[in-house]
Design a protein around this nucleic acid. Structure first.
Length: 483
DNA sequence: TGAAATGTTGGGGCG
DNA sequence: ACGCCCCAACATTTC
């Protein structure tokens, strides 16, 4: 006999990186199981006080929580915020409310897994999918092991999931009933969201960003083949901060990509949408890599370059961080990061290659700076990207692939519009010299109000020489490796 | 999801 | 008409 549903069932919706109402499987499960649903966000000191959690991302999180609180209130509920160690907070809330179960979206980082299994030993924690399309164990080679090469992972991912096999999107619940009769902590005001950034937190803005990416006469998603490489245009979705905090579900994005592919007016448009889909698959891939190979957080995925001798010059690192290397595209990218908490992906590769190859600075230093400063910083994807650019990762860029910061600049920012947007001191530099301002003759420097060495720095290194030096260092590391 | 060095081809200018 | 050179454009190889 099925037992009659008891009255007064209470569930906790433990919010972590799923700051959304729509298509939220953890929330749906909590609402399905409880007549009362307590949305709980725990301010975990270990996460928010980490030096790797910089103000832009924290500000985005706080503002996002306030937005979520509005949505919950509009549904007759209340957001409970508590600061403390997660297990302690949950134990306390469960005891004072008599909640039956805790529902949360499963997260696969080493810290999240450890935290959740500790909670599971004490309390009834039910984890739901939603962070990724594929569970890290779901896509594996025929021998059962995890893929280490993206292209094979991608092929299997598509076989498994394309055609909507990840399930239908869930409507957000109309009501999240709870009287809010429990004392909580406030959502902090500080740090605030940086001024003037193009990232307003919240589900609504995420929808608008997605809409903008797909809409219009020439939707960026259909121009993505070229647009993704053009930092001087609005060619990318700018959805990464929203995806990081779960303000939009990965299912909605994949489904949007599939629909766009189906409706594409021509082959090139279809290819654009498919390439964007593949960027989403990269995210699943790197989350899976971190799950199966947690040592990537500390060391090289492949040991071949373990013996590499980094230069790690602190002054050059400082110049890189502040956008003062003397290479305009590199500097524009680094200043975009400081200004917006975000950087165009093509430029991320260029600045990454410059740090690791031209300056021979340990990729972990760059990884750390990105973690601290990016609003969208995702542990798995950021680590994967850095290891790729350093040539130490899965699917690694080979050691001899060294980006030329000048030709990349000419190719991807041909008129220097991106450079001038973030480097005002180069505003009046003629197009002819915008990628190599140090070549400006004296009189041109004077006319454009940009004296090299004063208004804008000399290049910290000569790229040609730095390239040879990097090839040498990488070759030596290979020779000294057992691999 | 490079770049540079080196090799090949073919058109045009010119004696 | 022809050979020669130059060089841009493209292809291949190498790091």
């Amino acid at each position: 006999m099925p037992r009659k549903k008891e009255s007064k069932k209470t569930s906790i919706w433990w919010i972590r990186r799923d700051l959304r109402i729509a298509d939220n499987q953890a929330l749906a499960a909590a609402v399905g199981a409880g007549e009362t649903v307590i949305p709980l966000f725990i301010i975990d000191p270990r996460i928010v006080n980490s030096p790797r959690m910089g103000d832009p991302r924290l500000g985005f999180l706080w503002a996002g929580l306030r937005d979520l609180r509005r949505s919950i209130r509009a549904r007759g509920g209340s957001l409970l915020v508590r600061e403390g160690e997660p297990l302690q907070v949950l134990t306390d809330v469960v005891h004072s409310t008599g909640a039956d179960h805790i529902y949360a979206e499963e997260d696969y980082t080493p810290y999240a897994r450890k935290r959740d299994s500790a909670v599971r030993e004490q309390l009834s924690l039910k984890l739901t999918p939603g962070l990724t399309i594929a569970h890290p164990d779901q896509i594996s080679k025929n021998d059962g092991g995890p893929y280490q090469v993206y292209s094979y992972f991608m092929r299997k991912w598509k076989d498994r999931f394309l055609g909507g096999e990840y399930g239908d999107l869930l409507e957000g619940p109309g009501r999240i009933p709870w009287d809010g009769d429990l004392k909580g902590d406030p959502v902090p005001d500080h740090p605030g969201l940086p001024e003037g950034i193009p990232f307003r937190p919240g589900e609504e803005e995420a929808r608008e960003k997605l809409q903008a990416f797909r809409a219009g006469e020439a939707p960026p998603i259909y121009e993505y083949e070229e647009g993704r490489d053009r930092p001087d245009r609005e060619g990318t979705s700018k959805l990464s901060p929203y995806l990081h905090f779960g303000m939009v579900s990965i299912r909605r994005l994949v489904s949007a990509a599939e629909n766009a592919m189906g409706q594409a007016p021509d082959q090139e448009s279809r290819a654009g949408a498919e390439t964007w889909l593949e960027e989403l698959i990269w995210r699943d891939f790197y989350i899976s890599i971190l799950y199966h190979f947690p040592h990537v957080l500390e060391g090289n995925f492949r040991e071949t370059y373990d013996p590499l001798v980094w230069r790690n010059d602190p002054e050059e690192f400082a110049a890189w961080k502040q956008g003062k290397t003397g290479y305009p595209l590199v500097d524009a990218g680094m200043r975009q990061l400081l200004e917006l908490g975000w950087m165009h992906n093509r430029v991320r590769m260029v600045v990454g290659s410059f740090l690791v190859k031209d300056l021979l600075i340990d990729w972990r230093w760059g990884e750390d700076w990105f973690m601290e400063n990016l609003i969208d910083a995702d542990l798995a994807a950021n680590n994967g990207g850095w290891q790729w650019v350093a040539g130490t990762g899965t699917d690694a860029s080979p050691y001899f692939r060294i980006f030329n910061p000048i030709s990349q600049s000419g190719k991807h920012d041909p008129h220097g519009a991106y450079i001038r947007r973030y480097l005002p001191e180069l505003e009046a530099v003629p197009d002819e010299y915008i990628h190599e301002p140090w070549k400006m003759p004296e009189d041109v420097q004077r006319e454009s109000g940009c004296r090299i060495g004063e208004d804008y720095p000399e290049p910290v290194v000569d790229h040609g020489k730095a390239r040879e030096r990097a090839l040498q260092a990488y070759r030596e590391a290979r020779e000294n490796s057992d691999e």
